[in-house]
Amino acid sequence: MSTAHISARSPARRLPLHWLGILPFAAFVTLFLILPTMKIVVGAFQTPDGSFTLDNIRGLFTPSILAAYWISIKISVASALLGCLAGFAISAAVVFGGLPKGIRGPLLTFSGVASNFAGVPLAFAFLATLGPVGIVNVFLRSELGIDLRALGFNILSFWGLTITYLFFQIPLMILIITPALDGLKREWREAASILGATGFQYWRMVAFPILLPSILGTLALLFANAFGAVATAIALTGSSLSIVPILLFAQIRGDVLGNPHLGYALAFGMIVVTGVANAIYIWLRARSERWLK
């Protein structure tokens, strides 16, 4: 009540009072999102006694840490790309493929569940499936005489992790891209067709460019999603696969690198990588989206 009275009486004092309304939110975000992140960024350039240094960053450029970043990026890129591709195919099959209408609802519901089914239990599910005594391995060995292990497949590897991550990446893509596919108007396809375009030309010149911003956004999101995934990786591999989140986890737990500030640098590197991924996304999106409001 008092706010309304004052704002009606004196416009000059309106602004500060309006801003008060988001103070709790601003305080929370500052304290528990911005400041902690800033602490990492600043810490990455500090010595333990607080003076400026580049040594921490330099410390990242050792073969083992670089290798960890590289495999992390590879897994994230692979699982994001494959997730986009498979999710797009499944979504397109349901939206355009002439499949029964009844499939759509259950698919979206299941995608909602599966995209949230990450972390420790997901790792268990894949161990029980593709692990040494998993259902697929056992089946292939006993029924077809194929030994995946002998063929070089190991769940605790680049491909093992990628395949596991796809379990939450594909559904996320489906959830995001299905509304976008629904947004493609029938008239666009018909207009293209009546102007002489083949189905392929329609997709290349009209549908794909229209979808591109959504696809790029999803790619960036899937990348960050995989890059920061700690729980799945730890539960799946213990610490046998050296990817950045596992390395950082071990560093926070017990300072395995011998320099507490190297941990800052490691975390800062993660922010930089996801930040770069998003910068690329924003740049590509700006280029592909000139036609949007």
Binding site: E187, W188, A191, I194, G196, T198, V206, I210, W291
Partner: peptide
């Protein structure tokens, strides 16, 4: 055949020139 739709159905990702050019391009 040429066709004009009720909801315009212009390709939103193309400017006027490219929309008009579409049929010739394909």
């Amino acid at each position: 055949i040429g066709m004009v739709f009720q909801a315009y159905a212009l390709f939103p990702n193309m400017n006027v020139h490219d929309n008009v050019a579409f049929g010739l391009k394909v």
